[in-house]
Amino acid sequence: MLKRFDPFAVLALVGIPGAAATVFFYAPLERTMGVVQKIFYFHLGLAAAAFLSFFVACVAGVLYLLRRQRVWDERGTAAVEVGVLFTTLVLLTGSIWGRPIWNTWWTWDPRLTTSLILWFIFTACLILRSAVEQEEKRAVFCAVMAIVGFVDVPVVFLSARLWRSIHPTVIRSEGIALEPAMIVTLAVSLAAMLILWRALFRLRCSIQRQENTLLDLQQQLQR
């Protein structure tokens, strides 16, 4: 049943504005990139949360196939949904950053390409969900898709290196030489994003659960 009070939601309510404040008022201005660089703090947090999402979806898929408990389908679905949302944001924030820095909205950089392929795979998983009506079948199919999507990740990484050779110098890792204040900011925004992820994940889980309960009630009434 619906919990009225989710501690993670409250934490996120404080954490996200807190992280934004840290990013804009505490972190120093990057010398060459200027204010645009600040999007990187959110970008990285989103990317970490998105990846976590897909990992959770894969684990939930395995557990669903082994145990056939509805709760694992609910969690798996919630993870895929939130993961796709976060990956979309990763791609958007990356693009916004790339426009002034790389002078292009999109470039076939390995990390961008990896994110894009993952976005495709897990969006396909959502489309698959919408194409199956019977609950058990839908759950099994999505579990299988989430698992094969996640095991694709190593090969996606391997192949994404190929694109580097096309644009050899575009990506310089900002993560290497950061000022201490920047590292603190990064940690704060990473934590805030993970808390937000957790809150959204729980929200989607509980919505899934309520939808299922509603369907059960409808079916019982129809009999």
Partner: peptide, 8 residues
């Protein structure tokens, strides 16, 4: 989507 890396 799954086969994109293979194609690449």
């Amino acid at each position: 989507p799954l086969c994109l890396p293979l194609v690449a």
